[in-house]
């Protein structure tokens, strides 16, 4: 027979050890991760670059006014010479504050204005797509992992279907359909092209996260605290969002931080292929236009390239750092 606690003599209970006042207590995993991030110099540099681009995107209209340039204001007949090259600024006439990045050949549009607004397009599309994809991925992953039986099978099948669809082909096929459906009204076209781009990026971006979350949930749901919650009759929704989700924060944040640069690159790639939003400045479209000018007017090509490169590299390195910080197994 065991000894019930009440039978223990007072002396047997060890005295409360004198708590040494140290501030180690009460650090959540997120706090630990953030602490690690802060001491990672590369991560800090990347954060600075990303914040810089976010500021550009947010204040694009203000910045264009600050530089005294205007979006899509070129007049080919007045701003360009007989070879369709700009009359001011690079590549022929040196630097001028009138057009710090020069004017685009053929159209005479200001490159800086296009670049600033291009950052905005890139970040908007990448952010919205990432958030939507994360939302879908997490909810479907939770659902699939927690439900047993047929629901799990159906969801897994859907994930497999989406994984097997060729992303580029669907995007290429969708573009002309939207044009022929909404081509008659310029405004509707713009709206739907934008929406379709978001949809395509989102629809092809959620599956990996869904699988990841499902896997995590499969292992978490057998743990004691979940079992306990079920035993005492906590509703499923509450178990999902209050018990399971907080434990998934790390993989989700990692997935977001690695997904962002992928979406930035995908947006530029699609715009380069001519699938994108007509009439909205985008780095990918500028690159597409600038490729033939690579040796006569390199700056035209380099500006958007550097934009995409910097943003993607910074986001990627940041993503890696975030993953390292959240993963208890990595020790630098």
């Amino acid at each position: 027979m065991g000894i019930s606690p009440t039978e223990l003599s007072q002396q047997d209970v060890p005295a409360e050890p004198e708590v040494v006042k140290q501030e180690i207590a009460g650090r959540s995993p997120v706090q630990i991760a953030l602490g690690r991030l802060r001491s990672d110099k590369i991560a800090v540099a990347c954060v600075v670059i990303v914040v810089f681009f976010i500021l550009i995107a947010v204040f694009a209209p203000l910045l264009t006014r600050l530089f005294g340039v205007e979006l899509r204001a070129g007049s080919p007949s007045e701003d360009l010479d007989q070879f369709n090259f700009p009359l001011i600024g690079p590549p022929d006439h040196g630097f001028t504050w009138e057009a710090p990045l020069g004017l685009a050949p053929n159209t005479g549009h200001d490159n800086l204005a296009d670049w600033l607004y291009g950052a905005r397009t890139s970040l908007t599309i990448a952010t919205v797509s990432t958030l939507l994809a994360t939302l879908i991925g997490v909810s479907i992953g939770l659902l699939a992992g927690f439900s047993r039986g047929w629901m799990d099978k159906v969801i897994n099948f859907i994930i497999d279907v989406f994984l097997s669809l060729p992303f580029l082909l669907v995007a290429l096929a969708l573009a002309p359909i939207i044009v022929s459906r909404f081509g008659n009204s310029p405004d509707a076209l713009k709206f739907w092209q934008f929406t379709a781009l978001l949809l395509v990026l989102t629809l092809f971006g959620w599956m990996t996260l869904a699988r990841l979350v499902r896997g995590e949930v499969l292992s978490l749901r057998e743990r004691e605290f979940v079992q306990a919650a079920r035993v005492i009759g906590v509703p499923t929704r509450r178990i999902l969002f209050k018990e399971l989700l907080p434990n998934l924060i790390a993989p989700i944040i990692v997935s977001i931080s690695l997904g962002l640069p992928a979406f930035v690159a995908a947006e530029a790639g699609l715009a380069y292929l001519g699938i994108g939003v007509v009439g909205i400045p985008s780095w990918g479209q500028t690159i597409d236009n600038a490729v033939p000018f690579f040796n006569t007017y390199p700056l035209y090509l380099y500006a958007p390239l550097v934009g995409v490169f910097l943003l993607v590299v910074a986001l990627n390195l940041l993503g890696d750092a975030v993953r390292d910080a959240f993963d208890p197994k990595t020790r630098r």
Binding site: V179, G274, N289
Partner: peptide, 8 residues
């Protein structure tokens, strides 16, 4: 709409 020069 899928030809940048035509759009310009």
């Amino acid at each position: 709409s899928d030809d940048e020069q035509a759009v310009a």
